[in-house]
Design a protein around this nucleic acid. Structure first.
Lengths: 249, 249
DNA sequence: GTCCTAAAGTGGTATGACCACGGACTGACC
DNA sequence: GGTCAGTCCGTGGTCATACCACTTTAGGAC
């Protein structure tokens, strides 16, 4: 059901509902595909038998869900499925939860560990080359926190992409905004010392090698190890920060 | 950003935008919390300086995102974060993808495997008892496909819940609708013979025991084994179906 | 006290008009 | 002939107003 406010039993699908179901059906069935242009609001409202404000409410709602791209003076276009809406919805859903920025890492680990297993079986040579390229970028940008962070993300994203699973990819994109916020937040706690960064590269290399050898168990093990190390580093930094504060109140 | 159609640079936040950001901010900051009742549309439109149709567009959009519950004759209430919207958004995002009902199983495996690892560390005694209860239901409803399917889902859901990770839980709820469709679709391919069902119970029991022993590696191994067996069964059934069709065209 | 009814308040819809933006056509100018 | 400017048309964006449908509630009849 696209319409939220509805749970009654098949009465008269009041105007706005009709419009929503009308588009939902056509979007799900593929009759309306990305890039298609909708009729004008006036014609549509006439065709669907509703007033223009009602039609607009439905259209705006669909735009809010990221399904339509409505542009002033031009018209409404069907938008290609976009994970950004998912990310927004997830952010809003998880907003009231405590420690969500820590918790979202669990989802990240979940997706990536399964993705790398699939990637071991499905990754094409081009996928592997793409991942290797992100590794090169990672090495090149060790001293640049900004670029380095981007390369890090690109590496992990490339792995998920190599899994060739649309579901894993969409979910990963959906949690990406929260992942970014989490990453930014813990930048305050993590220092990139040379010893750490070199270890970081090595960890990524191990993950990549296991993947290139098409060894799922080893790849997942390496990946989990990589995550665990990062977690411990952050924890240690937090501890030492506390200790410093304790000694100099 | 809650508003999709906007990417320009800080011009005049046209009416509808103002309303959207107004509510988005108050929802994210917690100033508006679940259960709160909004002012009437007429008062709100007056207070925010927009016309009622515009105000309604924004309100309906928020309702579409599951953030508001608007009821005729009563008013608009802030809704507690609900994963059902996520599920709908995910369904619409994944609609154009081929074989999405198979692919969503990868996401399921990803979430559950990480969830059971966390559950090994975090599950309370009550969590374990809840999981055990679903196992009992599963055994009791072996001959009832309907109840059996429900018990099966309840078992896996209880594991995710025991992980005590809001993110994993929300995502699992989000993919649940697709999971259901997937389950229904492959009911046509899977026959529940006595030998299979007994094996099914045993597989679930092994998963539960490993979890109760708080052994993450073993628990994940058992869970992956359970998924793999189900996959192979389905594949074999498909093969035999094809062979039958081939022999009797 | 209980029940029914009517009024008030709420969201739902419709109409019509006007404004703002974008593109296309057409004309003049180079 | 090509290019640029202005105008016009179609589009979404907004507004005001009126009326309808549903829910609740308060008042009156019993």
């Amino acid at each position: 059901m696209l319409a939220i406010t509805r749970q009654d039993n098949e009465e008269t699908p009041s105007g706005a509902e009709r419009v929503l179901t009308f588009f939902r059906d056509r979007l799900l069935s593929g009759e309306l595909k990305a890039g298609d242009r909708l009729l004008g609001e006036r014609e549509l409202s006439l065709a669907l038998g509703v007033s223009r404000p009602v039609l607009r409410e439905a259209l705006r709602s669909l735009a809010m869900l990221g399904l339509l791209d409505i542009r002033h003076g031009r018209g409404a276009y069907v938008r290609s499925a976009d994970a950004s809406v998912l990310g927004q919805a997830l952010t809003l859903c998880l907003a009231p939860e405590p420690n969500i920025l820590d918790d979202v890492l669990q989802a990240r680990i979940a997706i990536e560990c399964q993705a790398i297993r699939l990637a071991c079986a499905r990754a094409s040579e081009r996928d592997l080359q793409a991942i290797a390229a992100t590794l090169d970028t990672l090495v090149d940008s060790l001293d640049d926190p900004e670029r380095g962070g981007g390369a890090d993300y690109a590496f992990h994203l490339a792995i998920v992409r190599a899994s060739d699973s649309a579901a894993l990819m969409k979910i990963y994109e959906a949690i990406s905004p929260l992942l970014m916020r989490s990453h930014v937040e813990r930048r305050r706690d993590t220092f990139r010392e040379p010893a750490i960064t070199s270890g970081l590269v090595e960890a990524h290399r191990q993950v990549f090698l296991a993947l290139a050898r098409r060894d799922p168990d080893e790849a997942e093990r390496a990946l989990r190890g990589h995550f665990r190390i990062g977690d411990e580093l952050r924890r240690n930094n937090l501890i030492s920060t506390w200790q410093e504060r304790g000694s100099t109140p």
